[in-house]
Design a protein around this nucleic acid. Structure first.
Lengths: 138, 138
DNA sequence: TTATTAGTTTGTAATCATTACAAGGTAGAA
DNA sequence: TTCTACCTTGTAATGATTACAAACTAATAA
C-alpha cells in the first residue's frame, strides 16, 4: 500500500513534476491489483478529483509508461490496461470471467539462441485459459 | 507456400464454407511472414478481388481465429495483426523499425506452480527491443 | 440442372478508445 | 511574488472495429 507521500518522493526523485492529478492516478494504480483501464480509473477518481479529465489520465499514464514507472498491459480486448511496475511477472487472463491474474515468472527460462543478436528490452508473457474459480463452476 | 488447393482442402476438412474471399485471405496470410494487418491485407488483395470489403476481412479473420485456424496477434499498436498458425513460437518486435520477428520457443520452459490449478489454453510470449539490423545502424 | 436455403459478402453507419489541439491553470525556480 | 515552462481540461478529430440490412452464393437435395 503506497501512500501519497511515498509516491510523491518517487516522482521527486525522478524529477517528474508533482501534480495532484498525477499523484492520485499513481496512487490508485499502485494500490490496485486489478490492472485498471482508463475508464475504471476515471470513475474511481472523479468524486475525489472532480475536475479530472480522461485526457489527463491518458497523458499521465502514457508519460509514466515512457519513463518506465508503470507498464501498459497488452490484452486482447481493445482497451489498454495499466500496471504499477513491481518486478517480472506474467499475466493470466481467464476467458470465462475476464479477470487478470499475476504470476511470478523466471524470465531467464525462455531465452533462445535465435535472439542472441537482438537487444531484448522487455519480455511480455501472457497466458489465457480458465481460472480455478470458473473451472469449479463448469 | 500453401496453394489455394491446399487451403481449400483444409477448409473442407473443417466444414468451413468455401468462398473465394476466404480462400484468398487465407492464402495471403499463409504465404506472408509479416503478420499483416487488415489494412495490409485489404490493399494487397483489392486488385485481385475488387469487390472485397474490409468488413469481410474482419469477419473472415475473426471467424478463422475462433476456429483456431489462425491467431490474432497482440501488439502494442492499436491494430490487430494476424498469423497463420504454424506451431508454438514467440514474437519479437523491434522498437526501432517496427518489424516483427518470429522465434522458436519451448513453451514448457515457463510453467509455474502458481498456475497448477488453472487451465492454460494459450501461451503468448512477446519480446520487445532492437533487432540486429537496427543495432548496427546506431 | 434447378430450386432452395442457410450462411456470406458488402457498403454504410454507428461505436468506442485514443489523440490533437488550444485555452486556461499551476508547480517550481528565481 | 513573479515568471515561465509545463499541465490540465473539454471538445473535436481520428481511426480501428462492429452492427446492420440488403443482395448474393455455396452447398444440398430433388
Amino acid at each position: 500500500m503506497k501512500t501519497l507521500e511515498d509516491l510523491s518522493n518517487e516522482l521527486k526523485r525522478k524529477n517528474i513534476r508533482l501534480t495532484h492529478q498525477r499523484l492520485k492516478i499513481l496512487e490508485y494504480l499502485s494500490n490496485s491489483k486489478t490492472h485498471p483501464t482508463v475508464e475504471e480509473i476515471y470513475h474511481a477518481l472523479k468524486n475525489e478529483v472532480p475536475s479530472l479529465s480522461k485526457t489527463t489520465i491518458y497523458n499521465t499514464l502514457n508519460y509514466l509508461s515512457e519513463l518506465k514507472l508503470i507498464k501498459t498491459l497488452i490484452v486482447d480486448d481493445n482497451e489498454a490496461r495499466f500496471d504499477a511496475v513491481t518486478g517480472s511477472h506474467g499475466h493470466f487472463k481467464c476467458d470465462e470471467c475476464g479477470k487478470i491474474y499475476d504470476f511470478d515468472l523466471n524470465t531467464e527460462a525462455f531465452d533462445t539462441e535465435y535472439l542472441d543478436d537482438f537487444k531484448v528490452n522487455e519480455k511480455i508473457v501472457y497466458f489465457k485459459g480458465i481460472c480455478p474459480g470458473c473451472l469449479s463452476k463448469i
